[in-house]
Design a protein around this nucleic acid. Structure first.
Lengths: 285, 285
DNA sequence: AATCCGTTAACTCGATTAATCACAACACAA
DNA sequence: TTGTGTTGTGATTAATCGAGTTAACGGATT
């Protein structure tokens, strides 16, 4: 009674996990009782009494409740821990099946060759962006320029990957937004160049009612770029991360960013070695 | 083309994982291509071309595809492995949140005391049944009588639990359907009584068009019983496991099963010690 | 028998989704 | 220029599904 918010959250989560509204509400109600009748459940869950039976029966087939076939019937939920495990196991087996099934599908009619040199791809979701970031870092052969616009963007995994890139002879240059973060980088990655950059020039792109900031800016071998932004919309209160990445030395996006980096990105310590300066002078598409 | 079935399976799985039909079909189509346009996707996925755009946009927000904003737009799916991980992670975080949220809910109005001695509960799903089985075994104080009607029912975990029950002084009696399985039990559980039982008397309960067999039959301290049956319906081709369990010495179900075990269940080696015989003579409800 | 309660099943309404259509912007060729 | 075809967006219709309600059945109680 005192925690309506928690109940609502739980109901919403259960629906996201595939339960219908009534099922979710009934289950949450049952977790609040050692056991209960349809009437009882209806009262605390606000589910029409006559529909409790359907809902609970479905829950039973999913292994989430047990039914006592008496008069009146009594219902009881399994433990929270067990319910969570049951649901998790269900989706885990589904993703596993999906993996197998999709691997047995692949390959369709091959389409014509596509010019890959001017591609600019958009993607969203922190996980997807992180994955792409590490893929790009791993394919670097000569140089990695990384500007982290937010503390959270510099994860342990990222540091490890940069380290192993250095080990195979790739030069790593890291820009940060703050002095303190630069010190961290210098401690974590001794072999890398570290500098403080100003990303203000890009923040001005953001719309007025949004709160957008750059989280990552990655340039691989001067020919592949990835820019990611965290976009927290004030209206919907949603946090989302978006990114674009482009391939090819004369790719439009790559060219622009290379030029921007050469001119306005490295004001404090000056442009690092040949990273951006050389690119700026050698792109004439 | 040659594996329509696989494609259909994948689409179905993706829908079970929360995607809409069009989204699922588009994604599967994209896994068959390095990249493709809306037209291309529409052709292999049978999704109306004009709807491909929406579907793919949703997929992008879920981190499953990347979009090239060109003319025409091009779309590309992330790797199968990455897609599976993304989906799995999504549901894992949801079950975790659920666990936490539910723990912050518990407890509602306490209802009147319920007479617990005649309860008979029904539950379904192998996982749920296995969990309940182990809970019952762990609460045993004196005696466990277990009849396994199917080889698969005797899992390693089950054996371990029976072993630890023996260690705390609980006598374990195991019935099997075959002589060979009995030998296995004798090897795995030296301290336990093992015998071959006949379960034919219960199989006759099954309806004609079904294929039902008893997988487990568990009697704890002569006062709690669990019977589980594997029910493979020929019509729907679905495999499901169901169970009932009851508590209390004079519980109707317990009484019946105790009596049945005393009379007709142990024909080969005779009834073990005092397990069922004593019960049969002492129940007068 | 009359009535109450528990239970099931059927039906309505509304929202979401699938499927189709119409249109504007653009490219290319005749 | 005109015609043709393609791309992308938006609106519209049709079908499906879930939520909410009502009716009907059967057993138990009085």
């Amino acid at each position: 009674m005192e925690d309506l918010t928690n109940v609502e959250r739980a109901v919403e989560l259960l629906q996201q996990l595939g339960l219908k509204e009534y099922e979710a509400k009934c289950f949450v109600a049952l977790t609040q009782l050692p056991s209960g009748t349809a009437k009882h459940i209806s009262e605390i869950s606000e589910v029409p009494r006559t529909r409790v039976y359907d809902a609970v029966r479905v829950l039973e087939t999913k292994g989430l409740v047990e039914i006592q076939h008496a008069n009146p019937q009594r219902f009881r939920a399994v433990s929270i821990e067990e319910a969570a495990q049951t649901l998790r196991a269900e989706y885990e087996s589904r993703t596993d099946s999906l993996r197998e099934t999709l691997q047995g599908v692949e390959a369709a009619t091959v389409e014509d060759e596509v010019d890959v040199s001017h591609e600019v791809w958009a993607l969203s979701g922190s996980a997807a962006i992180a994955t792409r970031t590490s893929q790009l870092i791993e394919e670097a052969e000569e140089e990695i320029v990384l500007v982290v616009g937010h503390e959270l963007a510099l994860t342990d995994g990222l540091v490890d990957q940069l380290e192993s890139a250095q080990d195979r002879g790739v030069s790593v240059i890291v820009g940060t937004v703050s002095e303190s973060l630069r010190e961290d980088v210098r401690a974590l990655l001794p072999g890398a160049e570290a500098f403080v950059s100003e990303l203000g020039w890009l923040s001005s792109m953001a719309a007025a009612d949004d709160d957008t900031e750059i989280t990552r800016l990655l340039l691989i071998d001067r020919a592949t770029i990835l820019v990611s932004t965290a976009h927290s919309n004030a209206a919907t209160k949603e946090e989302s991360e978006q990114a674009v990445f482009g391939r090819g030395f004369d790719n439009g996006l790559v060219t622009i960013v290379r030029r921007l980096m050469a001119t306005g990105l490295f004001p404090v310590d000056g442009p690092p070695s040949g990273a951006a300066g050389e690119g700026a002078s050698s792109d004439a598409s």
